[in-house]
Design a protein around this nucleic acid. Sequence first.
DNA 1: TCACAATAGTCCGAATTAGAACTACCGGTC
DNA 2: GACCGGTAGTTCTAATTCGGACTATTGTGA
Lengths: 152, 152
Amino acid sequence: MDLPNLKDDPYLQVLRPLVEAYLAFSRIDSRHIRSLRLTPSQFDVIVTLGDTTGLTCSQLSSQTLVTKGTLTGVLDRLETKGLIKRESVLGDKRRTKIKLTEKGGALFRKVFAAHIAFIRPFFARALSPQEVHTASTLLLRIRDSFQKGGQA
Amino acid sequence: MDLPNLKDDPYLQVLRPLVEAYLAFSRIDSRHIRSLRLTPSQFDVIVTLGDTTGLTCSQLSSQTLVTKGTLTGVLDRLETKGLIKRESVLGDKRRTKIKLTEKGGALFRKVFAAHIAFIRPFFARALSPQEVHTASTLLLRIRDSFQKGGQA
DNA sequence: TCACAATAGTCCGAATTAGAACTACCGGTC
DNA sequence: GACCGGTAGTTCTAATTCGGACTATTGTGA
């Protein structure tokens, strides 16, 4: 990604704060996740599987930030760590059901709450509840604009 | 990164929009950059070098999203493409000055404006000028909160 | 019943990523 | 002048990334 030095265009002046806010968050977020002995993608998969009875690869890919091509390797490593298991799906040999193991479920319960508790104060001291609402509204509009662009 | 399903906590409810807005932008941004035959990190380095007389690796690393460890390889590949050159620094054998070549300068002038023109409309249709100001202010507050946390 | 389109998941190659360890070099202090 | 701490850039490892190609399987329509 780029961080061009934009001075004149008011619209583009939201670009740098968006990227900088996200990266500042991501840096802290990723560092904490790594301290839990997981990579961000592994964490993403585990918290997405938590509280479900299992998801297929397609569902996982669409509900996480891990694309199809990358997911196989992430699941391989989680399986090697004994945190997930792959189960065949009755009636459809194409599909695989991915589930957390006992060990994976225990890890999910342990790390999820810890991570939320870790992240929450950063937002709490940055914005008032009213500002949270305003920021969310504007960010969703930006998201929607780019998502429409993707379909174009 | 993670996208936990957070329902109760108003502060955390800005997390998902932030991540989703950034990723939606990044997806479009990266795709356009790739269509220019560059990777996002290569683009980042080229636009950072554009309009300078050269930067050291340390300066480049701090002004782009490419960390020190990764930068060497990115510069290697840009050098192989003939877009940058490494020059020694008089009086300090530790430092290297990275400069765009003629070819690199021509590419910079060509792709930078094209990319800005490509990205601008997405933001323009999402926010009014007043909303740009509001969004920027709130995003910078989020950034600052996480950056302080990093120093802690 | 068959052919074809679509889906699911894997594999692949090139590039990137983070962070630590490493070598070479410079600056400050004694 | 010697020594030590700090800086600059490189190397290394394991993991990830993207997007397309691939194989196997299922669904649809004629």
